[in-house]
């Protein structure tokens, strides 16, 4: 009996050792999290002084990782502003310049690749995205017989992603932008499953951005570098649009197919377009999501 107890002890000891050893990979966790970040409060509960501390922490982390001191701001929505995007499908030539301008502006991971905009090459005569080609590789665009449809976050009035998030890590702000608190997201990817526009992206591993490609003009809810394991998506370039500028994808478009502005201002471009143009489309209108992103034809 005592021999049995001894052997049981040995096996138990061996088991505990193996248990400890099985966690060996955790040595490489590195800057996965830290106390300050772990205990950080929810965005909407942060006082201005809390926010200052959080921003200092983020600036420090970015500087340590990328060797560049960024300027991080917590930009609030402007009064009397509701953003709307309008995209002219007659003009778009499918050159994908918007995709890469967005990556550059918003500090998206280059490898593995995260892109907020997906351009679909569509045959004339259909708005069915399942007929679209994501992987077209053309030396010369536009090709005859096709039109091109860039798709990104539609900033819905009834966003399914916000509804499903179990921890309120994503919400709609009063200027219509649906934002994500990257420090609150638990990475369950329910929003990614809920989005009818496939607009959300997950950081499957630590994002990789070359040091010289960092855009130092950052905002908390916008383009600050993300961590492994959280969601991100198009936020209409908060760091630009909330200080009155156009989003990066708009400025990159070589044919002026992209139009952006304040729908509450009757003199804005988007107000003009929605008033004057006859054929405009909310993608998958039947979903009841009511996008703030409109597609239109003008010829």
């Amino acid at each position: 009996m005592s021999r049995r107890s001894f052997l049981r002890g040995c096996a138990a000891f061996g088991g505990v050792t193996a248990l400890a050893a099985s966690l060996a990979p955790l040595r490489e966790l590195g800057d996965y999290t830290n106390t300050e970040q772990f205990l950080q409060k929810y965005y909407k509960e942060l006082t201005p002084s809390d926010m200052t501390k959080v921003i200092t922490r983020i600036e420090g982390e970015v500087e340590r990782q990328y060797g560049i001191r960024p300027h991080v701001r917590d930009l609030k929505p402007m009064d009397g502003v509701e953003f709307v995007y309008a995209l002219n499908l007659t003009r778009c030539i499918g050159c994908r310049k918007c995709v890469h301008a967005c990556v550059k502006e918003n500090n998206q991971s280059r490898s593995p690749e995260i892109q907020y905009i997906r351009v679909l090459k569509m045959p004339h005569g259909s708005m069915d995205v399942e007929k679209g080609n994501h992987n077209y590789d053309s030396k010369q665009v536009p090709e005859k017989g096709f039109f091109y449809m860039p798709i990104q976050c539609q900033q819905c009035k009834n966003p399914p992603c916000v509804k499903v998030c179990p921890v309120n890590a994503t919400w709609q702000e009063k200027d219509g932008i649906t934002v994500i608190d990257y420090d609150w997201c638990i990475g369950c990817r329910y929003c990614e499953a809920a989005c009818p526009y496939w607009a959300r992206r997950f950081n499957f591993t630590k994002p990789q951005i070359p040091k010289d490609k960092i855009n130092p003009d950052m905002s908390y809810l916008g383009n600050r570098p993300r961590k492994q394991g959280v969601m991100e998506k198009c936020h209409f370039c908060i760091q630009r649009t909330r200080v009155g500028k156009y989003p990066a994808c708009l400025e990159a478009c070589p044919v002026g197919a992209r139009k952006f502005g304040n729908i509450l201002d009757p003199n804005s471009e988007v107000s003009y377009i929605l008033r004057e143009k006859r054929v405009f489309i909310q993608l998958k209108e039947e979903m009841g999501t009511s996008p703030r992103f409109f597609y239109y034809f003008d010829k």
């Binding site: 999290t33 921890v167 890590a169």
Partner: peptide
Amino acid sequence: DLGRPDRFWHLIPGIGQMN
């Protein structure tokens, strides 16, 4: 399946945010 299991406490009603 969680991307950030360290943030599980965000789910706990009272101290976190439960939607």
